[in-house]
Design a protein around this nucleic acid. Structure first.
Lengths: 194, 194
DNA sequence: GTCTATAGGATGATAGAC
DNA sequence: GTCTATCATCCTATAGAC
């Protein structure tokens, strides 16, 4: 499975044959079928593992916060955990993002529940923020969640995870999402002094 | 080309064979080679066309703004144009996003310049905003641009473009990016009254 | 310009020896 | 559990008739 994840991450779904996976594992293609009944089950398991690892990392990060942490702190911690899991913890997480859009619909269908479960974590986090009055009620929570996940997952396409860079980018995203990029609506340094 | 774009958008790069494209066009596979010298040139042309159409749509939207338009207005208009081009103007734009991550590296290399050119448009737009003091100087323009493009392109994965929905989502994104989702830094309605 | 036919190769999967 | 050998099928691309 580790070899398959590494190859899928690097080359994409269709470009990786069972022969490739077998060679990478030091076997021959036919031998794989003693362990897995088809290519599909390998792919589904890698997809599921990838999401679950990010899910657990984010869950841990939120659980580790002090009880009185603000929604802003929780979102920042969650973004940090998601990006770190994506860039620094193995091939399953990045393989998932990479190949999800490439696999046949049947495979997607067998994996979608795991995704929904992770998305629900974010929906809850953001929903709590709105309910507690810490996030604006006029932003659509569904859109915001999708923007966040899209922006985070897309970092795989451009971010080279050198030392410390992931942390900086995570802070950039948290800042923009929470405070906005515009100056005109942020004379808050001023507003605070006033 | 139209048939190919439609199929690539729906099924992805590897899942579409030349036979599929030929059948969809009312031809046989061999006949395609009288018009295109390989599958690669079809794919590259579709990729290029997709980006160019979005690029032109965004350029037009910015050019149509009044001369004294603010950076915030320009960004909002650009987001509107990008999302509308993605969701409402044919298969080339969405096929591009869909299959870009699936094509062999050689094809990517032949297409990357067109992408860079479009990204430069955004870099300029955001850079002008910072220079003119309308965007915060402490947000990383490179990150912001990547977040925006990632969030926008990812809408293809979740947004069903019913009537008017694209416009609403574009406004959601512009609001979040410019003003932020947090309440604590946005008592601006208050600040404005004061 | 479109067709048929096919070369030349890769792929997922299976059968059976060891 | 791993191997070799192979099936059946698909692919891109080419050759040559019409």
């Amino acid at each position: 499975m580790d070899c398959a994840a590494r190859l899928f991450r690097r080359d994409g779904y269709a470009a990786v044959s069972l022969r490739d996976i077998a060679t990478e594992s030091g076997m021959k293609a036919g031998s794989l079928y003693h362990h897995f009944e088809s290519k599909d089950v390998i792919v589904v398991e890698i997809l599921n593992t990838g999401v679950q690892r990010v899910h657990e990392a984010v869950e841990r990060a939120i659980a580790a916060l002090p009880a009185n942490a603000s929604t802003a702190q929780a979102i920042t911690a969650a973004i940090q955990a998601h990006l770190r899991a994506l860039h620094e913890s193995g091939d399953y997480t990045s393989a998932n993002i990479r190949i999800f859009g490439q696999v046949p619909h049947a495979i997607r269908a067998g994996h979608i529940a795991v995704r929904r479960s992770y998305e629900a974590l974010w929906a809850e986090l953001l929903g709590r923020g709105v309910k507690s009055g810490q996030l604006r009620a006029d932003v659509n929570v569904t859109s915001l969640r999708a923007f966040l996940l899209g922006a985070m997952n897309n970092t795989l396409e451009w971010l080279e995870p050198r030392r410390g860079v992931v942390t900086r980018v995570a802070n950039d995203l948290a800042t923009v999402i929470l405070d906005g990029a515009s100056v005109t609506r942020v004379p808050l340094a001023i507003a605070r002094k006033a």
